[in-house]
Amino acid sequence: MGGGTVTLFLCGDVMLGRGVDQILAHPGEPELREGYVGDARSYVCLAESVSGPVPAPVAPSWPWGEALRVLAEAAPDVRIVNLETSVTGSAAFAPDKLIHYRMHPANLPALAVARPDVCVLANNHVLDFGREGLTETLDALARAGLRTAGAGRSAGEAHAPAAVPVPDGGRVLVFALGAQSSGIPPGWAATADLSGVSCLPEVSAAAAAEIVQRVRAERRTGDLVVVSVHWGSNWGYRVPREHVRFARALVDGGVDVVHGHSSHHPRRIEVYRDRLILYGCGDFIDDYEGIGGHEEYRDDLRIAYLLTVAADTGRLTGLRMVPLRARRMRLEPAPDADRGWLCATLNRISDAVHVTLEPDGTLTLPYPAPERRTGTGP
């Protein structure tokens, strides 16, 4: 930290399972139960069909590619990712679920190489191999020294924030929630005596008030608060009104950053009461390369979000976004034309903010900006 600010790295879904797991040094069993695809290695073949050969086995750094250079140069104080896979060798596929993600625990160096401070687990894939798979996931991450939020052996553990110390003596508290609208089965919710995720049955004013109560119970003077929420559909730019109201209610209650994810592509950016709301960060790492059907959303393009907030107030002081492209199951710099497309798209779908494409190819949201306007419409 420097100059009275804290820098956070945020991204969307990090899915190191299935096809990605198969190119790493310790691939798990490739069996899938997806109807049309029965072998995880098929996703490697799909990627190769559009981008060329993928070497295997690859080093743990391979899936992150250019993102590791971005992180090294930015040196953020806190790194937060949504880990959208179970970490298990289990073969107990969750019934009544179409898609299952798992990475072998021996491949955890492919996560640790990015040095995440918090792995958010409140999503619709962490229990893909049942509660035993969740226990193995929690144990594996703990052995690797990685903090988690949003899932646990009880509701108390799942609801508890991850606390990351920052150099001034304060902390960044990360609370994680998963909405059923993202595909989380209701039965996955953690209870007093049952493991599971911190589940949000509905996105409502009452639910927001409950989260605010949890924040106030945990927060100490000098803490900054991030609420990371997995919600909504995979595709489309529309943000439901209830999501806007929920996010703003969190900010009204003292939350400094709302970190939304689940969509396969970036969604609207908002600055509300000088706080940043990311309604959908888009995917970051996965094995979706070569899967067709939604090309208009350019889900091969990914964004590394680097935001700075005032250490004493949590107010946004700047946002820098680095566009990347997934190719050969690895993140590489996005071409100039794609950076321009992302900039134009973010400006088109976001209200009352203006994203700028800088000469170095990054996208910025200077803040506070001259004659800035605070978002008002849902």
Rank of each mutant, 00 (worst) to 15 (best):
G222V: 11
H230S: 08
F284Y: 11
V271G: 02
Y237T: 11
S262E: 14
G222H: 10
V225M: 01
A247G: 10
H243L: 10
L250E: 00
T191N: 03
A189L: 04
W188G: 00
G222A: 11
V229Q: 05
A206S: 14
G183L: 06
R238T: 12
D256L: 02
E270L: 05
T191S: 14
V244D: 07
P201K: 14
R248A: 12
H264S: 14
L194S: 14
P266A: 12
T221W: 07
V239W: 01
S204D: 07
G232L: 11
V225P: 00
G260Y: 03
Y237Q: 15
L278H: 02
L276W: 09
L194Q: 15
L194G: 10
H230D: 04
L276N: 10
A247W: 02
C199P: 00
R238M: 04
D287P: 07
A205E: 13
D287R: 08
V215P: 03
H264L: 15
Q180R: 15
H243P: 03
D287T: 14
G253S: 10
R273V: 13
H261C: 07
G280H: 05
W235T: 10
V215G: 04
G280P: 03
C281Q: 13
G280W: 02
A192C: 05
S198I: 00
G183N: 08
V255I: 11
D274H: 15
H265M: 07
R267T: 14
G187R: 14
G282N: 07
P266K: 07
G183K: 10
E202C: 13
D274I: 06
R238C: 04
A206Q: 13
D274S: 14
G183P: 04
R267I: 12
S228Y: 01
V255Q: 02
E210A: 14
E218T: 12
D283S: 13
S262C: 15
P240R: 11
G196I: 05
V215I: 06
H261F: 14
F284I: 07
S262M: 12
R267V: 13
H264N: 15
G253V: 05
V225E: 00
V257A: 02
Y272F: 15
Y279Q: 02
G260Q: 01
A179R: 09
R273S: 12
I285Y: 02
F284S: 06
T191A: 13
W235E: 03
D256G: 02
V229F: 03
V229R: 01
V251M: 06
V271P: 01
D287F: 15
A206E: 14
V244A: 08
P266F: 13
A190G: 04
D223R: 10
R267E: 03
R216T: 00
R248T: 09
L224M: 06
S233E: 12
D283G: 14
Y288A: 10
W231L: 08
R268F: 00
E270D: 10
T191M: 07
V225T: 08
W231E: 00
G236T: 07
S182K: 08
G254S: 07
R214I: 00
F284M: 14
A205P: 08
R245C: 10
P185G: 05
S181V: 11
G187P: 05
F284N: 05
A192G: 10
A249R: 13
S181N: 03
A247D: 05
E242R: 15
R273M: 11
R245K: 13
A217L: 09
T221Q: 13
I211P: 00
A217F: 04
D283T: 10
S182L: 09
L276S: 12
